[in-house]
Design a binder for these strands. Structure first.
Length: 286
DNA sequence: TTCCAGGTATGCA
DNA sequence: TGCATACCTGGA
């Protein structure tokens, strides 16, 4: 099924899909192809128009459209967000100009949780490969345009694996964390739906009860699947960027950087984090 | 061969 | 509380 969305701007597929928030997208011609919540999606963007091909599902057209609008955050006014950031924080103007059209995707909490457990002390390239192998081995096959793709495996499936079995995904020391997280979800020790309703600080407390989940991973889940925009995940890149722009390059503890960003940026913090990440990863230095 | 990658857990002062 | 260190694996 094909859907066309007009007057979509600003919108930068590369920034969104290769910007480190989602790991299941690959370039396909001028666009991208990926698997989202059990559906295969092909997207391209040109002249303010977003074209989306999506694999067969049980949804109505209206539900599909809602699903796509929701995932790509099409109903949020990013022109205003970018304008607000440039006005309030002129020091970030070059960042926003360079990364314009980057949006926060609305991803599945479970998939985001596992993806960012895998991200610890890992490279983006390798994270993608491990997630692919997890899906191919334990996900559900989906046919699309004559090819097979695989959904992200459920907590039920992953909770039944042994550390020996999950080794085929080459996730390394993170295997035990993934299996344990799946069990905590299955047994109701952690309820991802309930966490969604908590304020950022409390949600981080809950999520970090899961071994393998620290403040950074928890913050990513909050930002990329719960739309908690005051969340500000700090990794080595963001740390370096904030220190460069605001502390004259002096090293600061992560805790201090989070507090600084949340106080200064408020509900724009999450967006700024995402623009900054894309900017610094593609500019080498500030 | 060695080092590093969207961090986290652990042990010790 | 704060700091150092180990950790699977793959690529440079």
């Amino acid at each position: 099924m094909r859907y066309v969305f007009t007057d979509v701007k600003p919108f930068n597929l590369e920034a969104m899909l290769e910007g480190g928030q989602a790991f299941r997208w690959e370039r396909e011609g001028k666009g991208y192809r990926g698997v989202v919540k059990g559906r295969v999606i092909s997207v391209s963007y040109d002249k303010d128009t977003l074209m989306v091909d999506i694999s067969e599902g049980n949804n109505t057209k209206e539900e599909d459209i809602k699903f796509i609008r929701d995932y790509f955050d099409l109903d949020r006014d990013y022109e205003k967000i970018e304008e607000d950031i440039k006005t309030q924080f002129p020091e970030l103007e070059k960042v926003i100009v360079m990364a314009s059209g980057n949006r926060i995707l609305h991803q599945d909490p479970w998939e985001t949780l596992v993806s960012f457990i895998i991200s610890a002390n890992n490279s983006i390239n390798n994270i993608k490969k491990v997630i692919d192998r997890l899906s191919q081995n334990y996900g559900r096959p989906i046919e699309f345009k004559g090819r097979l793709y695989y959904s992200f495996p459920s907590p039920e499936v992953l909770s039944s694996l042994s550390e020996e079995e999950i080794r085929c995904t080459r996730c390394g020391f993170r295997g035990k964390y993934i299996i344990n997280a799946a069990r905590m979800i299955r047994e109701g020790v952690i309820n991802l739906e309930e966490i969604k309703g908590l304020p950022t600080e409390e949600a981080i407390k809950e999520l970090t009860k899961i071994p393998g989940v620290g403040v950074k991973v928890a913050s990513c889940i909050l930002l990329f699947s719960y739309k908690k925009f005051d969340s500000f995940p700090v990794d080595v890149w963001i740390k370096r960027a904030v220190e460069g722009i605001y502390f004259n390059g002096a090293s600061k503890p992560v805790k201090e950087i989070i507090n600084f960003a949340q106080n200064k940026f408020g509900n724009l913090a999450g967006f700024i984090q995402q623009y900054l990440f894309y900017y610094i990863r593609n500019n080498k230095m500030i």
